[in-house]
């Protein structure tokens, strides 16, 4: 997602008709705003967009010639997209050392980096088993399990609700992330926080595997401080007014109430899709900048934005 954002911004530069630097910056900012508002979960997208904008700002300070600047930015953008894949390989190499022979790993949902890491470990001839959470409502866990089995790694899908049951058999937990926030916490698919709490209670290590361009300048205080949290999430149904209205209609009202109240199909829309995992539950973060402790993330972010 963040790479796609940067790619689109690079395209914008190519077709930009701006003649001054400030106009140029404005158009870029507008574009990134549009991108952010179009997607429901804009965290990873904002990470990539903000990073690119920051790079543009810095480049523009150092390069006085506008045309040369544009040229440079386009080249850099291209290089970045190429390197994105290489970055994942670098992370996978680092993370492989955390998987011991005969280990049982637990992963959550689907993450390209985690998949690559596990495939790399298998290529290193390490034998291990994987539990994958189903991770409703997206059910991406099933996709992960299929990919792993094709790669020759024994994988079993477990219910999201069975994490506590399984945790004592597990040696380590690996998750990817949509974004890493300032204090080293993670934003990832819903269910990650639960997984982290259970892992902590069972004294199992919890590793996050993530590319450095997903570091975000956010500092959520709790789950409800996230930008993805809206007031209609997890809201209770307003039963009173409906009942009142229905009672006006007549005797058929009873049947009508029964069908409408249940509203089963729409409950998914009222549930969150991402959650926030505080840094005290995370053992280590494997990034392309090296293996970091959660407190090291803040250092990296400060260096970037200072």
């Amino acid at each position: 997602m963040p790479i796609a954002a940067i790619e689109s911004l690079v395209e914008l530069i190519k077709h930009s008709k701006a003649t001054t630097l400030s106009e140029f910056m404005e158009s870029l900012k507008d574009a990134s705003q549009k991108l952010k508002s179009s997607v429901r979960n804009s965290i990873s997208l904002s990470a990539g967009a903000d990073l690119f904008l920051r790079f543009v700002t810095r480049t523009s300070h150092d390069v006085t010639n506008f045309e040369a600047c544009k040229e440079h930015l386009m080249n850099s953008g291209k290089v970045l997209v190429e390197k994105a894949v290489a970055v994942r390989h670098k992370i996978a190499e680092l993370g492989v050392q955390f998987i011991k022979d005969d280990a049982t790993i637990l992963i959550h949902s689907y993450s390209r980096v985690v998949m690559l890491l596990l495939q790399q470990a298998a290529a290193h001839k390490i034998r291990f088993n994987v539990y994958v959470t189903e991770s409703r409502p997206t059910s991406l866990g099933i996709k992960s399990a299929k990919i792993l089995c094709k790669a020759g790694i024994p994988a079993t899908i477990i219910l999201d609700t069975a994490v506590g049951y399984v945790i004592d058999k597990v040696d380590a937990v690996f998750v990817g992330a949509e974004g890493v926030v300032e204090n080293g916490g993670l934003i990832n698919a819903i269910g990650t926080y639960q997984l982290a709490v259970v892992a902590k209670a069972a004294n199992k290590p919890f590793y996050a595997v993530i590319e450095s361009y997903k570091f975000v300048r956010l500092f959520p205080l709790n789950q409800y401080d996230l930008p993805t949290h809206t007031s209609d999430l997890l809201a209770f149904p307003d039963l009173e007014s409906r009942c009142y209205q229905e009672s006006q209609i007549g005797e058929n009202s009873e049947q009508n109430i029964k069908e409408e109240d249940y509203d089963v199909e729409n409950f998914v829309a009222r549930n969150p899709t991402v959650d926030y995992t505080p840094p005290e539950y995370i053992t280590l973060l494997c990034t392309d900048l090296g293996v970091l402790t959660p407190s090291g993330v803040s250092d990296e972010l400060i260096k970037l934005y200072l």
């Binding site: 990073l51 690119f52 790079f55 150092d62 390069v63 450095s212 990296e300 260096k303 970037l304």
Partner: peptide, 14 residues
């Protein structure tokens, strides 16, 4: 000084 910036090109600006 900024490691993430390194991703975005080879850094030699001038």
């Amino acid at each position: 000084s900024a490691s993430m910036i390194n991703l975005l090109g080879d850094g030699s600006v001038s």
